[in-house]
Simulated scan of single mutants.
Amino acid sequence: MLKKKITRILLLSMVLLLGGCSASHKIAYMQDVRSDVRREVATVQVTAQPGDKISIVVNSKNPELADMFNLPIMAHRIGQPMNNSYNYNQQVSSYTVDSNGNIDFPILGELHVEGLKREKIASYIKNELVRKNQVKDAVVIVEFLNMGVSVMGEVNRPGRFSIDRDYLTLLDALSMAGDLTIHGKRENVLVTRRENGTETHYRVNLCDSKSLSASPVYYLHQNDQVYVEPNDVRARQSTVNGNNVRSASFWMSLASVLATISVLIFK
């Protein structure tokens, strides 16, 4: 009778142990997607904000006329002597959007660019040059220089990544960070966004395509911070000395003890 009770206890302990070890985790993204379903998603492009740096290049059939608006920076090469050859690197200057959302552009003066997309800024400057009879055949090229997002937590390559396109999705940013590790929580990704002096936190479920595409942070803005939380397995592995009751080593030790007791009882 005693052996039967002990056997039941051992079996129950092993079931609980194996159950804890084999707990399933949501791994696949967008698990609800079906191949016959189409969903329209409006793209949200990155726009200029205070503190951003913008490269603006004006081209024309008359280079001398265009040069009036490009303001080159003459940067002396380090380690090269100053002589008559004028050994310089030439770079086009960037414009910093001030706290009021403006840039100070040559001849045209103060231009309000906050909230404008890259092509809108180019079109705005081109129209102003033509309207004020400065450059009738102007071709304006605008690039955002210092925009980026930060990706932290359970990803393979955490860090800050530059926005090198007109729009960047959350999935794009996670891909640049090498994707989530197997220990990252896919159903509870945190995105922090600062706008107009306030900080807002959003939770995103990567396993649910509908809620993902509808999220305000599906398209990221510059300076967004993405944090992937560790799942319970990683949390258990993060104990101070590895000897916590929730650690894997504890359960392995317990299983070993139970197996030893079983052998002694039925010997």
Rank of each mutant, 00 (worst) to 15 (best):
V139H: 12
E128V: 02
E143F: 09
I121S: 08
E128Y: 09
E143V: 04
D137A: 05
L111W: 03
P106F: 13
V142E: 06
E110K: 12
K117W: 06
N133R: 11
E114V: 07
R118A: 00
D104G: 11
P106K: 07
Y124T: 07
D104K: 11
N133A: 08
L145K: 12
I125G: 04
E110F: 15
E119Y: 15
V130L: 06
I125S: 09
I121C: 11
E114I: 09
I125M: 02
G109P: 07
L129F: 02
K132I: 01
K126L: 01
G109K: 00
L116F: 09
D104T: 07
V113K: 09
E119C: 07
N127G: 12
I103A: 07
V140T: 07
V135N: 10
V140M: 05
L116H: 12
L111N: 04
P106M: 10
R131C: 05
V135H: 03
L116K: 13
E128M: 07
K120D: 13
V142L: 04
L145I: 08
R131T: 10
I107G: 15
V139S: 13
Y124I: 00
F144C: 00
E143P: 15
L111C: 03
D104V: 06
H112A: 15
E114L: 06
E143H: 12
